[in-house]
Design a protein around this nucleic acid. Structure first.
Lengths: 237, 237
DNA sequence: TTGACATGTGTACACCGTACACCTACCCTC
DNA sequence: GAGGGTAGGTGTACGGTGTACACATGTCAA
């Protein structure tokens, strides 16, 4: 008579964890709350998941499974751009994903595959192994389609009079912040918590890709130079 | 006879917290461990610090206080570069700083001052308010002198035979990762936890600055264009 | 039918942050 | 000097966390 609840599965546990984190936030996701959500005692989860860290690892893997297939072609830049923006689109559905990804300490095969594919895009695009390494570092967390927003806002007092006074003080103390905040006040959604708005992300990504394109050109030029040098020093022999 | 311990101060609490986090890691820093370290009961700390979050805020502020003065001049690029690298040098002494900064939700006046100064560097360098806004987003967490390393390594089995088998499997499954790992194996310190190695950080920063320089040139070009346009349409009147 | 094994339970432990009431020792004022 | 307010430190307690360990149960194979 107690066979109402379907049997627990690792996949079911992960799906429930994702759903719970999506709806109630990552802070509300504890082994206990997840167990209660599944109508089960906390320790039951440990039969399907080694612990909380492994649960989070699995959640990331499960989300990454939804990624579209790797774009083909040999032009590194559009391929990379498309890939990263697709990842962004996938992760945007899960506000907790950025912070969880950032705190992972071990890469699962799925994560490794993702990174290997990105490196492959660089390599087939003409980047040397060395330059690919640096480029991956330059991408950093941006390879996951988001950037950590470090634009925290100070607490504003509720009383409007006090707030006006604070704004006046701000005006003299942080003139550029006020200028930029007012200049871009019309942008809705630029205050998104986990991920920054689309336009800002694309700006950042494209600026970085410009820088990498310059480095690739330098690499090709120096390779051509050294080839000429080798030819020159080899021919007299 | 119990007057051995000097009186607690907010500054003393913050200094003790920083020292404890430096030596034992940020995970070992709890209100209880900090209190024990100071020979005091946990709740005593709350007389000087509102709570744990405020403690962490204060730790960041205390570290930032050690920053060198803002470099002068009007050339945005060397100024920005010097500023950020100086911040990096300051934060490198505190491995916990990156993760703590990332989790702050409110900006203290000290943090706001830092960001305002960065914006000032852009503005005096010719960036429009709008472009400065985007540039700050593009800097993102890199404005603090580090980038989150998202290069986690999978757990390697202790048994050498198993490890060899794993490496062989890696070779076929993640060829680019292996290629790049072996190509850059000689770099010591590239596995640093919180901050990436100096060369990688500077590469990333410079690549990004290249991209921003291009955007600044575009902005100036379009401003000149629209000025010409205005002149042309105004003169007939 | 029986036993093995996977699945779920119950209890317990050591932590965490912090609310609240209390005590104590100092400094300032009369 | 006496008195009192207050800042600093204490003790206890509550609700939360992850998870180790022993035990019960239910399902499938032999």
């Amino acid at each position: 008579m107690s066979t109402e609840r379907p049997r627990l599965t690792r996949d079911r546990v992960l799906a429930a964890a994702i759903a719970l984190a999506d709806s109630s936030g990552i802070d509300a996701l504890s082994m206990r709350s997840l167990a209660a959500d599944q109508g089960v005692v906390p320790m039951a989860l440990y039969k399907h998941v080694a612990g909380k860290q492994e649960l989070l690892d699995g959640m990331v893997d499960a989300v990454l499974t939804g990624l579209p297939p790797l774009p083909g072609g040999s032009e590194w830049r559009p391929r990379l751009r498309e890939r990263i923006l697709a990842t962004r689109a996938t992760l945007l559905a899960h506000p907790w994903a950025p912070s969880v990804i950032e705190t992972r300490t071990h890469a699962s095969p799925i994560v490794l595959t993702y990174m290997d594919e990105l490196m492959g895009i660089f390599r087939t695009g003409g980047f040397s192994a060395e330059l690919t390494h640096l480029a991956m570092h330059a991408l950093g967390i941006r390879m996951w389609g988001f950037t950590r927003e470090v634009f925290p806002t100070p607490a504003t007092p509720a009383d409007p009079e006090q707030r006006a006074a604070m704004l006046a003080q701000f005006q003299t103390q942080f003139p550029h912040i006020v200028e930029i905040a007012t200049a871009t006040a019309g942008h809705p959604g630029s205050e998104t918590a986990g991920c920054d708005a689309q336009v800002e992300f694309e700006f950042s990504l494209d600026a970085l890709l410009d820088g990498l394109a310059l480095r690739l050109a330098e690499q090709k030029a120096s390779a051509a130079n050294s080839a000429r040098g080798r030819q020159r020093s080899a021919s007299p022999r």
